[in-house]
Design a protein around this nucleic acid. Structure first.
Lengths: 240, 240
DNA sequence: CGAAGCTTTGATTTATTTCAAGTACAGTGG
DNA sequence: CCACTGTACTTGAAATAAATCAAAGCTTCG
């Protein structure tokens, strides 16, 4: 049930990445897992949240909703991402398990103490937060200025790069991607309607930029072609 | 020329907010000021950046630009905001002085050392970064799901609240705001064109939600009315 | 006064949304 | 094994919000 930290798939990516043995032992002693099925709510906006957690496997979303029901995803948590803000006790967003989800959790108070006593963990959390902020700023550009087509292409490149990063691989020319999100969740991520998402995916398929195997598996024959469709500066990514 | 830290207008809001006398003395010894005129570039994207800084007065923007010239603002730095990411030596964004700007600067290397030796400063920086991340996430909602009209109303409420925050006041019913941005810069912030910004401001004026005194001074007779136009949950702000 | 920069307003076009069917597919139970 | 249901997805036609193209108004500054 309880995976030893040494064998954890996110050991060198998560908030505990830079921990040495003594800290790791302390974490290991107090950690516990939570599992959620796809679609389940982890916490609702405004609800008390008395644990912090790393995503071990699966995907979770953070969403905000306007009074009239319009919703925007504001965070997509992939394995190794960290869930929660120290020093705050209720969630400002809805957190939902997008796929089956495994969280490695710690009670909030003890973790906050550890954060004070261990500069290494604090530094790692700062670093991860700064990465999140950079990602959010790229996302602002996407939402504010990109066309629907560019949004879809950008989203696919983001997924492909995140995936390559986790597997410590380079993004090759040919990429096979399993979309973790429904068309509706993609629409919430991209600030579009699900119909527009569907249409743009169809258009990219018609033009040979991508191919589909079923509804959820995307084959990208030429990753650079996809990047070119994303509207980003060509030099943003890895060579070849 | 050199303002003593005790008299600094952002003493209790900036990254140094929680510093005690010894740390403050160390900071005070190595700080230096930089001034920029409205419109001047602070750093360009990709350029080496060997200092970190707090905004003392004035406003700076962070912007990203696509190859074809479309630009999106991704950060608006007001007094007390902190400029730069420790551990990275080139800026990922263009930083521009929107108004006349005064920065309180520290050389990057020594500051990074201080960050390692002073948990108080590190904790403060984490806290500020988390605030930035929350603000960025609200911004995602604005860009992804709000109408042009709601975007303008939201922007005005954000400015009013930030202003009240700095002055430690409550946002009263009647608010007078000086817009720090041109219509074009507002458009870059909101993911609109400058014409749409102008039209929506005119529409809000026609309907009495706001009044204008010149092009840049906005009078809000009823702050709650403005908030209602912003599309946000009504309970987000301060009472009355 | 004239030029430049910022802003407003109008007319038109267009990308995306909205409304509306319809298809594909997996799971369930007869 | 096959109809049946529900969910996810696709596609079409019409409506619409915002962009684009174009012109003119207001300030400020030399």
């Amino acid at each position: 049930m309880q995976l030893p930290c040494e064998d954890c798939p996110i050991r060198y990516r998560a908030v505990c990445a830079t921990c040495e043995t003594p800290e790791l032992t302390e974490l290991e002693g107090s950690k516990y897992y939570r599992r959620y099925e796809a679609g389940q709510t982890v916490v609702l906006s405004g609800e008390r949240m008395d644990f912090v957690a790393s995503v071990v496997s699966g995907i979770a979303s953070l969403t905000q909703t306007l009074e009239d029901g319009r919703t925007q995803m504001v965070g997509l948590l992939l394995p190794s991402d960290f869930l929660w803000r120290p020093g705050r006790d209720s969630s400002p967003y809805d957190v939902t398990a997008v796929s089956d989800l495994l969280l490695c959790c710690f009670r909030r108070r003890p973790f906050e103490g550890l954060l004070r006593s261990s500069p290494r963990i604090a530094a790692r959390l700062l670093d991860m937060t700064l990465d999140d902020l950079d990602a959010a700023r790229d996302w602002l550009l996407l939402l504010g200025r990109k066309s629907a087509r560019e949004k879809i292409a950008s989203f696919l490149t983001i997924l492909a790069r995140r995936d390559a990063m986790l597997r410590q691989a380079q993004t090759p020319g040919l990429v096979v991607l399993d979309l973790p999100l429904t068309r509706e969740a993609m629409a919430d991520y991209l600030g579009l309607t699900l119909e527009t998402v569907s249409r743009q995916i169809s258009a990219l398929r018609r033009e040979g930029v991508i191919a589909l195997d079923g509804k959820r598996r995307v084959i990208v024959p030429d990753f650079n072609r996809l990047v070119a469709e994303s509207g980003d500066d060509s030099d943003g990514g890895l060579p070849s």
